[in-house]
Design a protein around this nucleic acid. Structure first.
Lengths: 156, 156
DNA sequence: CTATATAGACAACCACGTTGTCGAGAGTAA
DNA sequence: TTACTCTCGACAACGTGGTTGTCTATATAG
């Protein structure tokens, strides 16, 4: 029988797996017309969503303050991925929405993620990959769409 | 037959798995006498290692500049986890070494990681967990001891 | 002895998070 | 209508952790 690996290997492998996928995604995004996107930008735009949102709500979704969310919005607005328009029903609010370029980057990202997953399936076999996904779902029962990752690591 | 999940779920699950382990580790570390440690501190002390190192070498291991490494050293020195002493063989160098408290935190972390892995094994079964580890090794062939994670996410 | 390379300290700056404050607008109750 | 309260977004100040650039002291090679 084989002995168990040390427990500290598992989290590092999980992180490496995540990193390798995200790095490959952004290498491919750069090749297909989005060289300026950073990993955090994908999380922000995913949190904005097709329906748009506001700075306060975006902050809630990302798990940061509205001020931090506003800075992300400003960055992505200047880069051409988001627009801000006045809400006709509430003069306090500014509606943040994806531009065509923003939507394109999300569509492209979904497509590239599928391609990367196919690469893992080719290496591991479809059944082993599905087993890994099932097992990860079992130990991380939350909604995978939560995007409050940024800023979590460094902490206070 | 079941259909494949979207490719974007896999990286999010990997990140969630990593996060859940690291969060559980630090909750337990806090309970066992190390409430001030942050995730990044574990990476730094792991990079310092039992043999000690210097600021320049630490920066190399973490993938950051020597100045950034020096700031981590100063933080952890003030917190009582590291000491800096003059190198008797080279008056330019300051040897950075773990204190007893620093070593204790690493020993404790290794122990807690083993306990967390046992928890996953209880949920998934030993064979499934080993399969996941094997598969992660197969798709992330690098040395898992690399600890250059901090600062990678936000990018430029 | 001299030239070059390295270690670490220091300053300035930037990115991204925080808290605190503020004015404008919306909602509600007297 | 008026007054009170809440919400949204803007702005300033600050902390942390990263960067580049510069400087001094010390090793090391020629």
């Amino acid at each position: 029988m084989s002995s168990d690996p040390p427990g500290w290997e598992l989290p590092l492998r999980l992180l490496q797996g995540f990193r390798s996928l995200i790095d490959a995604l952004h290498a491919e995004l750069a090749r297909r017309g989005h060289p300026d996107l950073r990993p955090v930008h994908g999380f922000v735009m995913q949190a904005v969503g097709r329906d748009g949102t506001t700075a306060v709500e975006l902050g809630r979704r990302l798990g940061v303050t509205k001020q931090a969310a506003a800075k992300h919005i400003e960055t992505l607005e200047r880069a051409g991925y988001l627009t801000r328009t006045d809400d006709p029903d509430d003069a306090r609010r500014k509606l943040v929405q994806l531009t065509g370029r923003g939507v394109d980057s999300l569509v492209l990202s979904a497509q590239i993620f599928d391609e990367l997953r196919a690469g893992w399936a080719a290496t591991l076999g479809v059944e082993r990959l599905r087993a890994m996904e099932d097992d990860l779902r079992a130990v991380t029962p939350g909604n995978p769409m939560r995007v409050d990752a940024p800023g979590w690591f460094a902490g206070s």
